[in-house]
Design a protein around this nucleic acid. Structure first.
Length: 115
DNA sequence: CATCTGACGACCG
DNA sequence: GCGGTCGCCAGAT
């Protein structure tokens, strides 16, 4: 399976920002949703310069288990993203694929109306 | 071929 | 806010 589009989007995540598995899946219309995104990340080839650590759970929580969780935390902090108890403030660091940047105090509560 | 297990997320209590 | 359950998909055993 080619996760290329996934990795490409991950590489677009600017430094100091993070993206969730769900957001990733939604942005790319991945079948199966967030889990598929998670699977893609699990298969992330190391050494390609892919900032895999910028992908976290829907509530800003680091979902990785084992020693890698600590590594991710460290990497994020080294990029200027504060991590407290393996959690990141999504309101401040969530990156929206579309770079519609504008105000600093955005309004993340924007759900698409049911069709 | 049958089952189990995840780098998930929505729901419920 | 946290923990348990269910649905989803692909790989591993």
């Amino acid at each position: 399976m080619s996760w290329d589009p996934v990795y490409r989007l991950v590489q677009r995540i600017p430094r100091g920002k993070v993206l969730t598995y769900g957001g990733l899946a939604k942005a790319l219309r991945l079948p199966g949703g967030a889990r598929t995104a998670g699977r893609a990340m699990a298969a992330t080839p190391s050494g390609k310069g892919i900032p895999w650590h910028r992908v976290i759970g829907d509530r800003g929580k680091i979902l990785i288990r084992g020693p890698h969780a600590l590594l991710q935390k460290k990497l994020l902090e080294s990029e200027g993203v504060p991590v407290v108890e393996f959690r990141v403030d999504l309101k401040r660091h969530f990156w929206r694929p579309s770079q519609k940047r504008k105000s600093k105090a955005a309004a993340p509560r924007k759900r698409s109306p049911r069709v």
